[in-house]
Simulated assay, not measured.
Amino acid sequence: MNIEEIRQQFVQAWGVLGTSWGISRSMAQVHALLLLSKNEMSTEEIMEDLKLSRGNVNMVLRELISWNLLYKQTKPGDRKEYFIAEHDIWQIAVRIITERKKREIMPARQTVKVLLANASDANDAEQKHIKQMLGDLNSFIEQMDTLSELLLKAEKNALLKNVLKLMS
């Protein structure tokens, strides 16, 4: 398999996986393309490689920049904007964990806490079940929050980083 076939297969696979992770196929494909690109790429180059519309590519690039996964660059004398991906895998993981925590874990945690605080202590079996489930869900979300914090700290802690490498 030549390098172009590998690149194309990775971009397609990353796009499919992205939908499983709750992001658009286009967002995952643009990220994959730039992740495997050593050099920066213009919007036009991305559009051509992935056969995506300008609007779609522009929207995806803004979203990837907001996740801190891409950098925008300009070249002297050139009016085009160029984009390059973060290539440090630990930094990518930290940024994705941070963003997912902000967008998913924290809102879920807040919602469940409010509902749990408002749940009745009545003896009704259904109410007890609801309170139990909310309590279990709250505990699980707190554990996921703790786990995400540990992963974020691992990037800064060489010993923990090495332990994680040994586990793989």
Score class of each variant (00 low, 15 high):
91 Q>H: 10
140 F>Q: 04
79 R>E: 05
135 G>L: 00
98 T>G: 15
63 E>W: 10
55 G>Y: 10
60 V>A: 00
35 L>I: 08
79 R>Q: 05
2 N>D: 09
16 V>K: 06
63 E>Q: 10
120 S>A: 01
53 S>H: 03
144 M>T: 00
148 S>G: 06
6 I>Q: 02
135 G>H: 02
73 Q>S: 08
119 A>F: 08
16 V>M: 06
66 S>R: 09
106 M>P: 03
128 K>W: 04
21 W>T: 08
59 M>D: 12
123 N>W: 05
108 A>K: 08
36 L>Q: 07
133 M>W: 10
115 L>C: 10
24 S>H: 06
14 W>Q: 09
70 L>T: 01
88 D>N: 14
58 N>S: 12
157 N>I: 11
155 E>R: 15
80 K>A: 05
42 S>F: 06
69 L>A: 08
95 R>N: 11
84 I>T: 13
154 A>E: 10
53 S>Y: 12
24 S>C: 00
17 L>H: 06
163 V>L: 14
24 S>E: 11
67 W>E: 04
43 T>W: 14
7 R>W: 04
55 G>W: 05
50 L>P: 04
114 V>W: 12
61 L>D: 15
23 I>E: 02
5 E>A: 01
31 H>T: 09
130 I>C: 02
92 I>V: 04
74 T>L: 09
9 Q>H: 08
55 G>T: 04
140 F>D: 06
151 L>I: 13
48 E>P: 05
164 L>P: 12
78 D>G: 02
73 Q>C: 13
14 W>P: 06
154 A>H: 10
163 V>Q: 15
117 A>P: 04
62 R>S: 09
81 E>I: 03
3 I>L: 05
164 L>F: 14
45 E>Y: 09
5 E>W: 04
26 S>G: 09
120 S>I: 08
124 D>P: 10
156 K>Y: 05
155 E>D: 15
23 I>Q: 04
73 Q>L: 10
45 E>A: 11
131 K>G: 02
2 N>V: 05
29 Q>G: 06
156 K>L: 10
28 A>W: 01
15 G>L: 07
126 E>F: 14
54 R>N: 09
89 I>S: 07
103 R>G: 10
165 K>C: 14
133 M>P: 01
97 I>K: 00
112 V>Q: 00
165 K>Q: 15
41 M>K: 12
13 A>R: 08
139 S>A: 02
158 A>Y: 15
117 A>N: 12
139 S>K: 04
12 Q>R: 15
22 G>A: 14
102 K>F: 07
111 T>C: 09
164 L>R: 12
5 E>M: 03
4 E>Q: 13
113 K>F: 12
104 E>A: 04
131 K>N: 00
136 D>T: 07
148 S>M: 10
119 A>L: 07
80 K>C: 03
95 R>I: 07
112 V>N: 01
148 S>Q: 01
33 L>I: 12
